[in-house]
Amino acid sequence: MNDPVMHARVADLYTRYSETLCDLKIADWPEYFTDICLYRVVSRPNHDRGQLIGPMFAENKGALKDRVVAIRETLVYSSRSLTHLVNGVRIVSSEESTLRTRSMLAVYQTLIDGTTQLQLVGRTFDAIDASGPELKFRERVVVFDTELLAGALVYPV
C-alpha cells in the first residue's frame, strides 16, 4: 500500500475521529461508521483466548446511536474530559475498497477533583470502507491491555 494520498486520508480519518471524541462531540461519533459495521472493545486477555465479551459491542450504526442516547440521556456519571493519543496508524492491507489498518491508542481521563489518569491503552484492528467520498469504519476492534479498568468506561474509544 504505497498510495501517499490514501495514507494521508487514513491519517486524517484517525485524527478527526480522535478529535471528535476528545471534543466530546459524541453525537457525531456514529457518523464515522458504515450503516452495517462491527464495533468491539475487548480486553487483550479475552481477545487472546478468542473470547468476544468486552465493554462495548455493536453491529450497526443504529446500535452506536443507541449508545449515544444512553451517554447523553440515561446514564448517570460525573463529567470528565478525555484525550485520545493515536500512534502508528498503518495500512496493513488493501483489497478492493477495504483497507485493513492497525494503530496504538492511549486514552487519558480527567475527572473533577482528580489528576489526569491513564484510562486505557491498547491496539486497534480496523477495516475501512474506501468506496465512498469519505472513509468510514466498517470494523473497529479496540483490544485494550487495561483489563482491570478504573471505574466505568463511559465513552467509546
Binding site: P55, M56, F57, A58, E59, R67, L75, V76, G151, A152
Partner: peptide, 23 residues
C-alpha cells in the same frame, strides 16, 4: 453478546452503579 452491553464497565445499566458506588 448483544445483551452483555447492559452490564460491565460500559454497561447501559452498570455504569450508573459503578459511578454511584464511587459517590
Amino acid at each position: 453478546l448483544r445483551q452483555a452491553n447492559l452490564t460491565g464497565p460500559s454497561g447501559f445499566v452498570s455504569v450508573d452503579d459503578t459511578e454511584v458506588l464511587e459517590y
